[in-house]
Amino acid sequence: MLTYVLRRLASIIPVAFIAVTACFFILRLAPGGPFDQERALPPAILRNLRAAYDLDQPLVIQYFIYIGRLLRGDLGPSMVVQDFTVSQLLALGLPFSLMLGLFAFVIATVAGIAAGTIAAVNQNKWPDYVLVLVVMIGLIIPNFLMGSILQLVFGVYLRWLPAGGWQNGSMAHLVMPVIVLAWPHAARISRLMRGSMIEVLGSNYVRTAKAKGLGERLVLSRHAIKPALIPVVSYLGPGLSYLLTGSLIVEQIFSLPGIGRYFINAALSRDYGLVLGTVILYMAIILVLNLLVDLAYAWLDPKVRYR
């Protein structure tokens, strides 16, 4: 088990290296740069700025300078937000973004598993049809549209919830962002769970459990849920990364103080350092999550052995 974890950690290194390299060069393919403004800067100032951020070097040299700093744990300075390093900006926004993402993740996972199970047990009856409808809505409507609709209905017309912002940090500000973020995720999980639960409920070993007279509740909770969760767990890793990246957009819609605020602005203003730093941060989170998901298999499916 320990050797497996170590080997998985080691395999993260080439993956991370390739991702950083690809991001670095793709970002530079985009036209424009951090110092292009509507009113062009005087050439002398521009030259000084480019020299200060090593942008006057050939691209390959810049790449090695960046990698060298990265290996020392330095994400470099922000090129647009003055007087801040990338690490400082990320540290400002990360706690909020993580909170939002994890909050949505937990709610979506629990709701998705519960809804999928209920639908499977009531296959082709009304709870199943209601679920299909709710799932469809969640999957069809993109989060920026869903966010705007909710803002308009509950924030502007009904005035039940604040339409955005995070002034006093009350939970009411989080309700709509979490719903927008969690909905599609819960929809996917419930569909996976419904399918695998229907399969498990028709399996021979569930028939055995019923023949033992265990009662519906025990058959479901002890015999059916664990094996039915296997396909769901394999989705949780990609699902969480989806939520964390999705949270960047939702933060922007609801003007919340997470990384999203910096990331979207950074991408628009070609703040190379900040964009790369954000990508690296999320990449690290996703790689660790995938590792955790693989370890969770062992608990669910004892046939999985780690070597």
Binding site: Y205, R207, A209, A211, K212, G213, E216, H223, P227
Partner: peptide
């Protein structure tokens, strides 16, 4: 629900395929 008081206690059943009739995760 009532049947469960007798199934497995007074009347038990064994199935054809032992490979799939036991729960793989318990």
């Amino acid at each position: 629900g009532k049947l469960d008081a007798y199934r497995g206690k007074d009347i038990a059943m064994i199935f054809q395929d032992p490979m799939t009739s036991l729960n793989p995760s318990l």
